[in-house]
């Protein structure tokens, strides 16, 4: 995964205090950089290395696509516009676009990224843990069944995201799991 490194990142206030999980006071899913806040600027900066890497990856994928498209096995060879035609056209087009993007990345100033935020304190850790827990949940669901796996999954998640206290760690997972079980299993007859 091409990691967007942050050369000019401004450390957030919390960073020195706690490297790990931050617990927001009021909490909200969303926040905004555009409406005036007192916080330091957390807008992501343009990044040439990243632009070059993604363009190169795009080019590699496009070229691989051309090869793979030629390898599609047909039960009846008809020539002309056959099942290989469209994937081939697409791969050639993508490779050409990616090549142009690569040239642009090398010779032009990198793209503006002002719509993105910098990585927050403990951001990578939080993302990595959520992904690992998510994958473990998918596996655990198969092994121990929906109810058990989901309660544990939710408890771990809220803990990683900064929730504390028995209500958060125990009550919330149990109630949410129960609700979804009723909705899906009982009402919608989904075999969970």
């Amino acid at each position: 995964m091409p990691t967007p490194d942050e050369p000019t990142r401004v450390p957030s206030v919390e960073e020195g205090l706690e490297s790990g999980i931050d617990t927001p006071p009021g909490g909200a899913y969303l926040y905004t950089a555009s409406i005036g806040t007192d916080a330091p600027d957390t807008t992501a900066q343009p990044n040439r290395t990243m632009e070059i890497v993604v363009a190169a990856v795009g080019l590699a994928v496009g070229l691989a696509g051309i090869l793979l498209a030629q390898g599609i096995e047909l039960r009846a060879e008809t020539g002309g516009i056959d099942p290989r035609w469209w994937p081939t056209v697409l791969s050639i087009g993508s490779a050409a676009l990616a090549a142009a993007l690569l040239v642009a990345a090398l010779v032009r100033p990198p793209f503006d990224r002002s719509d993105l935020e910098t990585v927050g304190a403990g951001g990578w850790r939080r993302l990595l843990l959520a992904t690992v827990i998510g994958a473990a949940y998918v596996a655990g669901w198969q092994l121990v069944g929906y109810l058990g796996a989901t309660v544990v999954f939710l408890a771990l998640l809220v803990w990683v995201f900064g929730g504390r206290g028995w209500k958060t760690i125990v009550l919330f997972p149990v109630i949410t799991t129960g609700f979804t079980y009723l909705l899906f299993h009982t009402l919608l007859k989904v075999p969970l």
Binding site: W141, Q142, G145, Y146, P191, L192
Partner: peptide, 8 residues
Amino acid sequence: MLSSRNNV
């Protein structure tokens, strides 16, 4: 999968 397991 799961429900069959539960059923077993």
